[in-house]
Write a protein that binds this DNA or RNA. Sequence first.
DNA 1: CACGAGACCTGTTCGC
DNA 2: TGCGAACAGGTCTCGT
Length: 273
Amino acid sequence: MPELPEVETICIGLRNGIPEQPSIIGNQISEAHVLWNRTIKEPTVEKFVSKIQGQEIIEISRRGKFIVMRLSHDFLIIHLRMSGDLFYRRNFESPATHDRVIFKFKDDGYLVFNDTRKFGRIWLVVDDNEVLGGLGLEPFDPSLSGLELYKMLQRRSTQIKKLLLEQSFLAGIGNIYADEALHLARLHPLTLSNQIDIDSAEVLLRSIRSVLQDGIRHHGASIDWVYKGGDFQNYFKVYKRTGLPCRQCSTLIERIAVGQRSTHFCPNCQKQE
DNA sequence: CACGAGACCTGTTCGC
DNA sequence: TGCGAACAGGTCTCGT
């Protein structure tokens, strides 16, 4: 489920609270139960459980698609991968289906990491840079300009769709928002990055920010049975719209594979140079 | 990070 | 209806 807007939505909810869920800032973790060992990437499960005990949640932020929780002594970092979700549960008798890690709060309630496909990963580290250090700029970083993006694109000669999915290039964009941003920017997904001129680079940056902002405003996208938070899926222009008419020009949306990821685009709006 | 294939997983949907 | 294949919001790793 999670790309930048979905992760951002989850972070905001945990930090500020939402109906039914209080903010978890300031809560003290009394114990952690790990139900699927491979979810814990670092340290070992035993050390994870013992080290996290008694730590307080000081701050919650997002970096790329990672949820970063600053605790009293360590950083608790969570990546939801394909099917992970993180939410507050007031009480429960036994774990629900697909619960992988459960954090019990000293005073009230639980923080639950639920992950159908078991791809999600959790780290408990002193230095968050160890996990986040390889990430590229945040798309909303004020220091990122159209000119800077243009220079970054010039240094590579990769299909733009693949480049947008590289987390070391820009952090947080996934398959949905890459397709949506390229459609808005009128760029064919196979366009080579170093063939994008300065004007197109500026349009691309505005498009990336626009679709991500829209995603956040709609509390993310909810597809199928995974994640039921937002409604951005109702505003997709190309993603999962294969064979349907483009909302701009009525040409039928096509689907191709790019780097083994399904890629949706309008062959009329997004012509290859 | 050049590129593709396979792995990691479970569940839903598609095609015959 | 049944059944296997294809596909799913993401990374990793290995082989070439």
